[in-house]
Design a protein around this nucleic acid. Structure first.
Lengths: 336, 336
DNA sequence: TCCCGATGTGCAAGCGCTTACAGTTCGGAG
DNA sequence: CTCCGAACTGTAAGCGCTTGCACATCGGGA
C-alpha cells in the first residue's frame, strides 16, 4: 500500500449520485446551479455528499470549466517587510471575490522545460512585480499566455494591465523637506540597484527638486548601490565625519536603517547632525528611535487593486489593457 | 469575443500528434518517458511542439496522474520578518525537488462551502503552521484528507508529520545569561499570546532556569500579552522607572524592540540599566543599535526540512508520521 | 531459413466532471 | 378532459491527457 500512482479510490460524483438515487448531472447541478434543482432532491444529494465526505475533483472540474479560482502573486522576493502589506491587500481582495491567492517568489521562467513551473498552468491568472527592465522576462511573460497584471511597471504596451507607483510625488516632497533646512550641495540620494525602475524614478525626482532650487547635483550626490541595510551602512561609513550636516534621501528604509546604524557608531546625532528619510514606510519605521521619516507607498491598496484588475480581466480577455497609478507621500517623523 | 466560458481553443496533444505524424500516445511519451521513444521521432515531436507552442493542459494531466507538483505553505500570517527565512528555505527545497511552492496566509477552513477554498484540491500537499492549540482546526485539517506536515506543533498523534522547535534550549541559555549578572527577582519574561505553544514553552524554560537557581518567579515576573512591538512598548512604559536594573527575556524580537523603544524614551540606558534579549533573531536584530541579543531559530532549515518531509510523504502515504526537532540558541549581542 | 524477444508505436479505454439535449412530470388554460 | 409549456431530471458526449495492451518491425541465434 505505497507508491504514488496507486490510483486513489477517491469518492466520485457517481457514487454520490447512486447513493442519492439521482444522476451525476443532478449532483453537479446541486453543487453549481442550485436553482435548477428541487429543494427536495438537493437535500438528498447534500446528505449523500456529507455521508460520503465527497469532495469534487478539481482537476476534472477544471478540465471542463477551464478555471481554478486560484491566482498567484509573484514577487521578486516574498521575504522582507516591504511586500507584507501588498500581500495582505491582495489576499483580502481575492478572498472577497471568491478566489484563492497564493504567493511565490519564483518567476515562472523557463516554463517550458522545468516540470515544476508547469504548476502555473493551474492558475487562472498572475500578478507579477517585475523589478528590472530586462526584455527577456517580458517575452517569458508573454509566452505564459495567461491573464497577467504587472505591478510597478507600465506594461500596457505589452498588453498587460498595470498598477503603478508614482514615486515622483513622494520623492519630491521628501527632497523639498530636506532642502528646506539643508543647503542643496549637502543633500544626497542613496539609492538601490540602478536598473531598478523605482530607483531611477526616485533619483530623478530628487534631481528635479535640486534643479528647481537652481542647483545641479554633483555625481556623488546621487549614488546607487543595493537595497540593503548593509549597503547603507557601508556607504555611511565611507563618508565618515563628512556625514555631519548632511541630509540623505535613501532609496528604501533598509538603506536608511543602515545609515542610521552607522551614524550611531560614528557618534553622529540624528537628526541634529544628519537627517535621513527612507522610502516605503515599512512597519519598522516606527519601531526604532528616533522614528524614521519615510515616503509611504499605499501597498495594501496596490495589492487590492491588482487583484481586482486581474479578476475583471478574467471575465473579459479582450478589453484594452488598463493602468492605474497610486501616489506616494512623505511621512515626516523624527529622523528629518 | 468576451465572456469566460468561451471554450478556449487551446493547442491539444492531438494537434501536435497530427502535425508530427504520430499518435497522441507517442507525444505523451516523449514528454513523460523519453527513453521509450526513438530519438528520431522525439525530435519530430519536439519540433511540432514548439511550432504549435503547445503547452500541456495541467488539469487533464492532473486528472490522470493525480498530482500537480504544487505544494503550499500556510502560515498564520505571511507578513512580517519572522516567516521570511522559513519561506526561503522551503522555496529552495521545493525548487530543488521539482516542486512548486506557493504560500498562503489563509487557512483552508470551511473548505466545504467556500468556493475559493476548493483550490486546495489542486495541491499535492500542505505545510501548515498551526499557532494555537484549538481542536477545531485539527479536525479541519483532517477533513482535508491530504498529505500535511505541521510546523511548530507536534501533530504526530493526529497522523501528521511534524517539524518542531525546541524552545527550551535557547530560552534556557538566555535566562542563564541574564541570571549571570542580574539577580533572579529582577529578571522577567514578557511573552506573547498565552495560548501560543511557543509562548508557553519559552516561559516554562525561563521558570525552570530561575528554579535551578533556587528562585520561584513571582506572578509579575512572567507575563503574557501579544507578539507585537506595541505590546512591548506598553508593558515597558507601565513599569516606568522600575525598569532600571532589570533584565528581560522577550517572547519575540518585536516585543523586545518595543521595550527598547520605550526605554529610549524613558532615558534608560541599554544594556547598562536594562538588559533585553529577544526571540527569533529576525534580520532586524542587527540593524538597530545597540544590536539586539536574541535567541535564534533555524527557520530556513525548518522550511527546508518541512518540504522534504512532505515530498517524501507524498511517495509513501502509509508510513508512520515522523517528527524532527530543531534546537534554538542564544546569540548574545549588545543589548544584554 | 525460421523463430523469438526486444523495441517502438498505435489503439482505445478511461480519469471525474459539466452541459447540451431529450425526456419526463405536472398544473392549469382551453 | 385534453393539451401545452414550465420546470426538473436523465442521457451521453466529450474536456485533454495517460497507459495497459496489442501489433509491427527487426536483428540475431539456432
Amino acid at each position: 500500500m505505497r507508491g504514488r500512482p496507486e490510483r486513489n479510490k477517491q469518492v466520485s460524483i457517481e457514487q454520490v449520485a447512486r447513493r442519492a438515487g439521482v444522476s451525476t448531472a443532478t449532483v453537479s447541478r446541486v453543487l453549481n446551479s442550485p436553482s435548477k434543482v428541487t429543494a427536495n432532491t438537493a437535500e438528498r444529494v447534500h446528505e449523500a455528499i456529507s455521508e460520503l465526505r465527497y469532495r469534487p475533483n478539481m482537476f476534472a472540474k477544471g478540465l471542463m470549466t477551464r478555471q481554478s479560482k486560484v491566482i498567484a502573486l509573484v514577487l521578486p522576493d516574498i521575504h522582507g517587510e516591504f511586500y507584507s502589506e501588498l500581500l495582505r491587500g491582495a489576499d483580502e481582495a481575492a478572498d472577497e471575490l471568491g478566489y484563492h491567492l497564493l504567493a511565490s517568489s519564483r518567476m515562472p521562467f523557463d516554463v517550458s522545460d522545468r516540470p515544476a513551473a508547469a504548476g502555473f498552468g493551474l492558475l487562472d491568472g498572475l500578478i507579477v512585480m517585475v523589478p528590472t527592465t530586462s526584455q527577456d522576462q517580458l517575452v517569458l511573460l508573454g509566452d505564459l499566455n495567461m491573464p497577467i497584471v504587472a505591478i510597478d511597471r507600465d506594461l500596457t504596451d505589452h498588453g498587460f494591465d498595470s498598477v503603478l507607483i508614482d514615486n515622483s510625488v513622494g520623492a519630491g516632497q521628501a527632497a523639498d523637506h530636506l532642502l528646506a533646512a539643508t543647503p542643496p550641495e549637502r543633500c544626497v540620494y542613496v539609492g538601490g540597484d540602478q536598473e531598478n525602475v523605482d530607483s531611477m524614478e526616485r533619483s530623478e525626482a530628487f534631481r528635479a527638486a535640486l534643479r528647481r532650487r537652481g542647483a545641479e547635483p554633483a555625481p556623488d550626490q546621487i549614488v546607487f548601490g543595493r537595497y540593503t541595510a548593509s549597503y547603507g551602512e557601508r556607504w555611511a561609513k565611507e563618508q565618515g565625519e563628512s556625514l555631519r550636516g548632511r541630509a540623505v534621501l535613501a532609496g528604501n528604509d533598509e538603506i536608511a536603517l543602515g545609515i542610521i546604524a552607522a551614524a550611531g557608531e560614528l557618534g553622529i546625532m540624528i537628526p541634529e547632525e544628519l537627517r535621513v528619510i527612507g522610502f516605503d514606510n515599512i512597519r519598522l519605521a516606527t519601531l526604532i528611535r528616533p522614528k524614521l521619516s519615510s515616503v509611504g507607498i499605499p501597498l495594501k491598496t496596490i495589492g487590492d487593486q491588482a487583484v481586482r484588475m486581474l479578476i475583471e480581466r478574467l471575465d473579459d480577455t479582450e478589453a484594452a489593457p488598463r493602468r492605474v497609478e497610486f501616489p506616494t507621500d512623505l511621512i515626516a517623523r523624527e529622523t528629518s
